[in-house]
Design a protein around this nucleic acid. Structure first.
Lengths: 232, 232
DNA sequence: ACCTGAACACCGTTCAAGT
DNA sequence: ACCTGAACACCGTTCAAGT
C-alpha cells in the first residue's frame, strides 16, 4: 500500500470503497469537460486532452460515455438544467418572467462552451420542459389568452437564446482585442461607430452609444419589456 | 492538349486565359466550402475534404487563405452580406422592418453551416453594418425617439438570431428522426407535449399545438410584431 | 505563380490486453 | 469492472520541392 501516497488528495471526502483508488465517474468527466469547454472553447475539448487532465488514458472515458457525441449531449442537458427558476418568484408576474429569462441568459453566457451545441440540439431536456411550464404559469397571471401566451413565451426563448449568442460573440471579440474592461470596449465600439462616414451611415453615427450597448443587462431587459409590454 | 478532355465541362463559360487550366480561386474555394458546410455541417468542412472535392492537394488552398480560420471568416462575411434589404421596401415602415428581418432569418436558416460561427464572430461585416443602417432608417419613420429606436433594433437582431438558431436545431433533430414533412414533425411534437402528465405540465399540455409551432413563419412574425407593437 | 508530396503533431475510435 | 497501449484513419499545418 501507500503506493501513490504522494499524489495530492483533494480533501479526503467521497471515497466509496475504502482502500480503492477514487477512479473515474461520469460526474468527474462531465465537470472537467465543462471546465475545458467554457474556459478554452468547445474546439479545445478533445477526448485526449480531457483524459490527460483527468490523469487517465483516453480510452478510459469510453467506459462512461459511448462516444464524444454522447458526452456533448450530457453536457448540454446538464447546463440546460442549471437555472433555478424557483428562485425567480415575484408577486409581479412581469418581474417573475423577466427574472426567469435573466437567469436563463446568465446561465448560457456563463457556459459559452455549449452555445454552439444550441444550433443542433433542441432542449427537450430541462430548459424548455420544466422551465417553460413554470414561465407559462407565470404568464397565465397576465390574463392573456392561450395562443398569445404560448407564442409570447416562444418569442422570449428565441430572444434570450439570440441575446446569449450575440453576447458570447462580443465577449470573444473583446478577448481577441485584449480588452478587459466592458466599459472600455463599449466606448471603443461607440467611437468606431461615431467615426463612420455620416453621409453613408447617418443613423449608426447618431445612435452610436446605444448601438454599442447591444449586450448590456439594460439592453436585455429592454427587449424583454418590449415582448411583454402589450400585456401591461 | 486534349489531355483531360473527358472531364465533364460545366458549360464552357468563364475561362480567363484560354489554353490554361481553370485552376483555383478564392471564389471557387469559398463556394465549395459553403456547399459542404451547409449540406453536411460545419464539422464536415475539412481542408482535406474540401481540397478533395476541388480535385486539388490540401496545401493548394493555402495559396488563397492563410489558414482555416481565415476561410471561416470569409464564409461568415460572405453569407452575412447576402440578404438584399433593398428588396424589402414597403410603404408601411412596420412591414418594411418585418420584411428585412424575415430576409435575414431566411438567409441564416438556409446557411445552417455558418450558424455556429455566430457564437464567436460579431458581424461588423455587412449584416449589422449596411443592413442595420437601413433598418434604423425604416424605424425612423415610426416616429420613435433615438434610444428606443436603437434598442428596438438590437432586440430585433437578438430575436432573429435566436430564432434562426432554434429553427436550425429543430431541423437537425427532425432530420435525425428521419421525418421529411414539417407538418408531420409539428404534429408529432404536439402529440408528445399533449401526452405529458397533466398534473406536472398543465400548461404545456393545454398549449401543445402552439408550443409545437415554435419555428414556423407565423411564430416568427408574431415575435416581430410584439417587438414593434408598442409603436403602432 | 501556382501546385504537390512528405512529414509532424494532433484527433476520435477499435481492438486486444492487462489487473 | 475498470483501465491501458498499440494501431488506424483522419485532421491542420510546415517545409521543401516541383513546373
Amino acid at each position: 500500500m501507500a503506493k501513490h501516497q504522494q499524489r495530492k488528495e483533494k480533501a479526503g471526502v467521497q471515497r466509496k470503497k475504502p482502500g480503492r483508488r477514487p477512479g473515474l465517474s461520469r460526474n468527474k468527466i462531465l465537470a472537467m469537460a465543462l471546465g475545458i469547454a467554457n474556459e478554452q472553447g468547445l474546439d479545445a475539448l478533445t477526448l485526449r486532452r480531457l483524459a490527460n487532465q483527468l490523469n487517465v488514458a483516453p480510452m478510459a472515458i469510453y467506459r462512461y460515455f459511448g462516444n464524444k457525441e454522447e458526452l456533448l449531449n450530457e453536457m448540454f442537458d446538464y447546463v440546460s438544467s442549471l437555472p433555478d427558476l424557483e428562485a425567480c418568484s415575484s408577486e409581479n408576474w412581469h418581474e417573475e418572467v423577466c427574472n426567469a429569462y435573466a437567469a436563463v441568459r446568465e446561465n448560457l453566457v456563463s457556459h459559452p462552451g455549449i452555445l454552439p451545441l444550441l444550433t443542433q440540439r433542441y432542449g427537450v431536456g430541462e430548459m424548455t420542459q420544466r422551465s417553460t411550464e413554470r414561465v407559462l404559469q407565470s404568464l397565465k397571471r397576465s390574463g392573456m389568452h392561450d395562443e398569445a401566451r404560448a407564442r409570447t413565451n416562444c418569442a422570449l426563448i428565441a430572444y434570450t437564446v439570440g441575446f446569449a449568442v450575440l453576447q458570447s460573440a462580443v465577449r470573444h471579440q473583446q478577448e481577441l482585442a485584449g480588452i478587459d474592461s466592458d466599459e472600455e470596449w463599449r466606448a471603443l465600439g461607440a467611437e468606431r461607430l461615431a467615426s463612420l462616414p455620416a453621409e453613408d451611415y447617418p443613423e449608426r453615427v447618431k445612435l452610436a452609444p446605444y448601438i454599442a450597448d447591444i449586450v448590456s443587462d439594460k439592453q436585455f431587459r429592454f427587449g424583454l419589456d418590449l415582448l411583454l409590454k402589450n400585456l401591461d
